[in-house]
Amino acid sequence: MRQYWNSLRQGRAVPDRADVEPRGIREVLDYAFILERIAPGAARFRLAGSHLVDLMGMEVRGMPVCSVLNPDSRGRFSDVLESVFKAPQTAELTLRAEASYGRPVLVGRMLLLPLKSDLGDVTRALGCLATQGQIGRGPRRFDMTGETVAPLIQGARALPPGPGATGFGEEPLPWRPPMLSRPPREPLRPDATPEERRARFRVIEGPED
């Protein structure tokens, strides 16, 4: 999958979603999927191969990609996913599903590769999820046990996944409280009416007695 994605780049940092054709990934088509970013750190399946359907025991198209993970791993996965879109960069995850009734231990790897949408923004991703072991009863959900992110340009610095990542290796600016200002007030005319004078009153709360 990675070799196919690299072949689509043709000197570009990120290939287009329109460049991806099923026949180009026919050998891994069952394990492939395409994501659409719908919010910071969130994406849904636009297309998914049969292996994902077998893992979840249902059609996954339209479902959030985090649905294949256990709740404790979703926060970290969201950070990694957002870094793929924002940097942009590639990510490879290691996964593990523990054994339970009718569900043997299952390990897997997920690859995330950024793509441009028809509008030219990086809001799509080509992915691959492969597992080793018997699937057993679905749905199977995984713990994320590790991740590796890599820049698109050789020698560049990868963006560490985390809240507030800004992309292109930049650090987020420190938060500062907003500054509120009042527009200058014209002086009250000597012949102002009582209603105009009352409009200038301000309520100031002081300490209670």
Rank of each mutant, 00 (worst) to 15 (best):
R176L: 14
D118H: 06
G49F: 02
P151A: 07
A165V: 15
V80R: 04
R124G: 08
R140T: 09
R96A: 10
S100P: 01
D118C: 05
G133D: 01
P139D: 04
V84G: 03
G75E: 11
G138V: 01
L55Q: 05
M63L: 13
G167R: 07
K116F: 08
L106I: 12
D121H: 09
F168E: 13
L119H: 09
R185F: 01
G75P: 06
E59D: 13
E98A: 10
M58R: 11
R74F: 02
V105D: 11
A99Q: 14
M110F: 02
P184H: 00
W175T: 14
A87Y: 07
M63G: 00
F168C: 06
R124H: 15
R137Y: 06
A165M: 14
F85R: 06
G75S: 14
A165D: 06
F77A: 11
S50C: 01
H51S: 15
P178Y: 04
T148M: 14
A150M: 15
A150D: 09
P160G: 12
R185M: 11
G136V: 01
G169F: 08
Q134E: 11
L119T: 15
M179D: 04
G169V: 10
P114A: 14
A87G: 14
P88I: 08
R109Y: 03
L173A: 15
S117H: 06
Y101P: 00
T166S: 12
P177G: 01
E171H: 11
G146E: 02
E82V: 07
F142Q: 08
R157I: 13
R76D: 04
I135Y: 01
E170F: 12
G127I: 02
P172Q: 03
S117E: 10
V122R: 10
E171G: 11
P71C: 04
Q132W: 02
M179G: 05
Q132G: 12
A158P: 12
E82A: 06
P139A: 08
T123H: 04
Y101R: 13
L129F: 03
R176Y: 04
P183D: 05
V53Y: 06
Q132H: 07
G133Y: 01
L126E: 01
M110I: 06
S67A: 14
